[in-house]
Amino acid sequence: MAQPPDLIAGSATGSIFDLGYHGYDGPRLGRRHAISTLFVHSLKWTFGIGRGGRAKIAPFVLAGLTLLPAVIAVGIRALAGPAAERVSPITPQNYLTYVQTFIAFFVTAQAPELLGRDQRSHVLTLYFSRALERTDYALAKYGALVCALALVLLAPQAVLLLGMIFASVDLGAGLGATLPLVVPILLSTVVAAAFFSGIALAIAAFIPRRAFSAGAIVATFLVLSGVVEILVVRGRLRDPFRYVALLDPYALLDGLASTLFGVPGRDASVTHSGVDPAIFAVGACVVAVATLLVIVARYRRIEA
């Protein structure tokens, strides 16, 4: 015999609630786990993983564009053989300076995603009422963007190195020519990723609205590099004003690469100012650390 309908309904809701709550006696991994989870989550977020298809367009298109010069350079090497040295201007020593605009666009697109979104939705309150500390949040976000950008930049340089090895007549000689480049490539890429990410995140941390912060970031890179270069090239600046060149983020990148690889710089702000490229390299490191401190300070005080 069927039960009266109200009894069935009653027991149904009852059973849902009875299943509803259990305590948790399992491990609590605490703050470290929270930091590493937020880092991985943000790293994936940068590439649009776990988000909709549209979120993947910007990072992957920019990663593809960053790869393009490497593919072209390898192609030229394959076709031209040993003569490529003279034909192709793109080398592992100056690769980053060829893709500097894509680097700027990558951090412009992703820094507001990483920081502004949480500020706009006020979800920071939920983060900061947990095991995670405010400083941890800032470090995880910074680490995630630096790591994402470093991955985007290391891929084409790996292609370039492998291309050089396989295009060389003698495999041993190819390895001998490329292996010494590995450490400078890693160093320059990590420092470049850190100071580009740092500048973008430091701006994004203060401007929650995505459109405004993206505008401010891209303007900082393009206007600073453009104006400073004009000042340095046309201004015939003397001491101490020629150090204005250090404000050009692309000059910092060029100085960093030329210092680490021991090759002459390409960037006009570096060559025309006459400032030692090593000072630009130091400047890049200072910017990377200073912007991290700015972001941490901002998140220690931010309303949440």
Binding site: G26, P27, R28, L29, H33, A34, T37, L38, L126, A131
Partner: peptide, 17 residues
């Protein structure tokens, strides 16, 4: 689901838990 699970990990719970 995604938000609450993410925040649970922020509280220190392992992923599966």
């Amino acid at each position: 689901t995604d938000l609450v699970a993410h925040l649970a990990e922020m509280s220190g719970l392992p992923r599966i838990a």
